[in-house]
Design a binder for these strands. Structure first.
Lengths: 204, 204
DNA sequence: GTCTATATGACGATAGAC
DNA sequence: GTCTATCGTCATATAGAC
């Protein structure tokens, strides 16, 4: 009796589901600690499988984390397409930053590789990651340019500076500081950081 | 023949000088990489002594890095006292952030412990560090309050949010992103980040 | 593909000669 | 106090049975 196509498909689905679970766990763990601090044991325990099994899915820790980052960029891309087209450009940008902050505050967003970590080196050599990054950056870049031409974002700022400043909110330590203080609710923290990001510290 | 007090003092000076060199190297290395990524071998090589000798000065990696962070807070404190007293409060704050950014861009400022690293745990248990942190924060907090009462910093923002936002500039990844691009000079990067920090992204 | 067990290497810390 | 040499530990990655 030959294995039916359905059975094969089911096995593949299992495989995919397990891989998805691994990526989910990795994403969450990378949101809790730095790349160096996260161990493959952490991931294996979180998923509930043996460490060796991880290596059947991903050849190395670097590859795993890389895939996790690509997945996150995919989620960013998916979010971008849900932003109403009729929103003003600066409101689209605000929506993006708000979404990033909400993910950060829920520990669902890994720290961006802001320094020369092993991860950053791998990411910059990974075509999937770079492609996803360019796709996302292009969309955001358009919004920035539009917002600047409308004057709602300072046209004097180089668009790249605006882009990086928005990206940096996704790993803003201020969120962690304020959360630790316990003095503000999550929603308040998001609004406060949003305000300082777009309006700055000065009175308007 | 007894050792003269002068000789003793000289040996002590040597000791102090070596310790200073160790702290300097640690400070620079912590500016280049994260706490976990920095090794005691790195420090020993940078100073030009054997790793074992480090442990004659500092009992552990944690203690060494802790001392390094305390030393940096000391430099911050020293800088604060050089800021002209007749400057407007908001200009004092700008001067502080500019100084931080210049240190960051020259890799002379360790990343602040923004997440739960082993270092952060140690720092928060170290009275010297906490005391230095409170001293510095108090001075900055006064400037913030004054700037808010003058209306040059938004009085609607909780002072703590302003303080953390300023602190976060000392480890702003935007600086690294822009520096890597090679499109802006160090001085331009400092001014751009200063502008987004105080004025935000929106046009004024 | 999943597991247990292990090889390999890196790093913090120490021993002991000088 | 400085060095060389080494220990103990932990984490990545793999071997090999099932």
């Amino acid at each position: 009796m030959q294995p039916s196509p359905v059975k094969l498909s089911f096995k593949e689905q299992m495989h995919q589901a397990r891989e998805e679970a691994i990526l989910q766990a990795t994403c969450r763990l990378l949101g809790e600690k730095a790349y160096d601090a996260m161990t493959m044991d952490d991931v294996a325990n979180a998923v509930g499988i043996a460490k060796a099994s991880l290596y059947k899915h991903f050849a190395s820790k670097e590859e795993l984390c890389c895939a996790s980052m690509v997945q996150i960029l995919g989620k960013v891309h998916a979010f971008l397409s849900t932003v109403p087209a009729d929103l003003a450009p600066q409101d689209k940008l605000r929506a993006l930053v708000r979404w990033s902050l909400e993910r950060l505050i829920g520990n669902h967003m890994p720290l961006l590789p802001s320094r020369n970590t092993a991860l950053r080196t791998v990411l910059m050599a990974d075509n999937q990651y770079l492609h996803a990054l360019v796709t996302v950056s292009d969309q955001i870049g358009q919004w920035i340019t539009q917002a600047q031409s409308q004057g709602s974002v300072d046209p004097a700022l180089p668009p790249l500076v605006v882009l990086y400043t928005l990206y940096a909110r996704a790993c803003d330590p201020v969120v962690g500081f304020l959360k630790e203080g316990g003095q503000f609710s999550d929603a308040e923290i998001v609004e406060l950081v949003l305000k300082t990001c777009f309006d700055g510290l000065r009175s308007r």
